[in-house]
Amino acid sequence: MRPLSLKGHERALTRVRFNREGDLTFSCAKDKKPCVWYTENGERIGSYDGHNGAVWDIDVSWDTTKCVTASGDLTVKIWDAELGNCLYTINHQTPMKSCGFSYSGNLVCFTTQKMTKNLSTFQVRDLRDSSQMVEGGESFFYSQFDVNATTALFTQMDDLVTIGFESGLLQQYDLRNPDTPIHTNESVHRYSVQDLQLSPRGDFLISASRDKTAALLDVNDLKKLKQYKSERPVNSACISPNRDHICLGGGEDAMQVTQTSVSAGHFEAKIYHMVFEEEFARFKGHFGPINTMAWHPSGTIIATGGEDGYIRIQEFDEDYLGFTYDF
């Protein structure tokens, strides 16, 4: 199958995600309309209209009933995934940078950007509690930081969350204790953490950083297990559901892209062996840096979203599927 190149967004992609079954692909970009697509043929089903600014993140609940989006228009919105209407809107004083559902889909976490006197925050709300979901409602978990929290996700059921920061810091919080993080890792990344993703089983975390590396972390204590070196800043990384492989993508800064030729920009997605840390394959396609990527639950498809405004759904060839390491 040829890779599908999906053109539905007018601006750079910020996130692509599959739902749990993998039949649907959710995407958002710096334009105002997050989209949902059929993975199989790349047909767009529809969009979630209502935001009035760049959408930085989208997540979908495990049963594909609800979506959550974080936008630069100072809102997080929760949508009916099927009908596309907005169920709840959460407001904040500054742009929202990332969001995610908990394991059960009952909790929503999001991070907000630091701006003038407003610190960066990480918050969690319970969808079942109507007092939190009305306008002016307050989060039951609230934590502030001096540095921008760039990305956050639930890493163990509905209890633990992991947050990545612009300084390269990683922290893990227990929702029952908002005061102090239970685990911290400040050594693994030197620059901004751009993306955090959980392995499909939930046993590992992978972090992508602008320091040109991605790292495999122990989900229980954030210890670095492996580190994958790339030649360029890494914007996103994901773990294969059924092989010991990881994939990462990124590229030269968007600012410098005009001066660099495509081959020198390293806009390819690179596949590494998860345990041996060796790069063994890469695939091209984007004309700019890859901003986001997701591995399909079947393990044979990767979706990537680029600065160039395209989503590419890449199905692996026989060479990849038949490739094994001797050990």
Binding site: R201, G202, D203, N220, L225, K226, V275, F276, D326, F327
Partner: peptide, 24 residues
């Protein structure tokens, strides 16, 4: 030699992996 080295790395990794899976 490479295979030998990889086996060792994999064995060390499998310990962590199985510990995490047990917890899960």
């Amino acid at each position: 030699e490479v295979v030998e080295k990889r086996r060792k790395i994999m064995a060390a990794f499998d310990i962590i992996r199985s510990r995490n899976r047990e917890q899960l």
